[in-house]
Design a protein around this nucleic acid. Structure first.
Lengths: 126, 126
DNA sequence: CCGATATTTCGCCATATAGCGAATTATATC
DNA sequence: GATATAATTCGCTATATGGCGAAATATCGG
């Protein structure tokens, strides 16, 4: 029960749900999720740590970067069920589709450039 | 998205999850749920209204009593998915099994007696 | 070793939420 | 109509949560 409630609480925030949906079929660096959600790095880090504690995501560290991915086949059944339910319910949601589009743009940028640009009110044109 | 978050928020409270699980395969009167959760009537009423707003439960009014049941086949897919996920994840949870046992006892009581007994620190033996 | 940089942790604030009891509403019974 | 009763709404309090910026941590490049 404790574990299960950890999952439901984790799913109870819109930004965390958006982050999970963004991780469908790919892994993302924290800075890419920051860019997507347009929130402070500390806020996004906290969100991701909540998702990790609920076992909804796994992480991989590569140098200074931390990559997140959805929990896979090794995960607990309730976690896999949650992810399946989430994806099925929101796949066609207009906000999620919009995020998907936004992500396509974000993914075009080199990670180091993206990270360096954060916190400096990036101008879209340069 | 708005509707979906309504569901996830509703699932984010342990007492609401317990109430939903209690409704598997039967309908219950509010006073029976009050007895199960051992919370104030106003608190339980609020919980159930949140579940109703999320469309996770339907209600039927019969005189002074209000009966709750899980949303059925007519419900939105994300709601049905949520209920299915919930039941599959918690069916064997020890807290839920304990609630199931407790409910068996509660169901033995006549509704009017149960309601009348609430708020008066019922002695198990009378 | 010394910055620079990505992430996390900490401290704080504003808001949301769960809980209760009292007051209100709706319905049944007298 | 008056009274009793099941449920809801209201007002309040205590706690939890999401947000940020500053400070701390970890890692890379010189």
């Amino acid at each position: 029960m404790r574990d299960f409630m950890g999952v439901t609480r984790a799913l109870g925030d819109e930004n965390r749900v958006r982050a999970l949906m963004a991780l469908r079929g790919r892994e993302l660096c924290l800075c890419q999720i920051i860019e997507l959600l347009e929130l402070a790095p500390s806020t996004v880090s906290k969100h991701m740590s909540i998702l990790k504690q609920a076992r909804l995501v796994d992480t991989r560290k590569s140098g200074r970067w931390v990559f997140y991915r959805l929990a896979g086949n090794g995960a607990a059944p309730e976690v896999q069920g949650a992810i399946a339910w989430l994806c099925k319910s929101l796949e066609r949601d207009s906000f999620i589709v919009q995020d998907d589009d936004h992500l396509q743009e974000i993914l075009k940028w080199d990670l180091s450039i993206l990270c360096a640009a954060q916190g400096r009110k990036v101008n879209e044109t340069c």
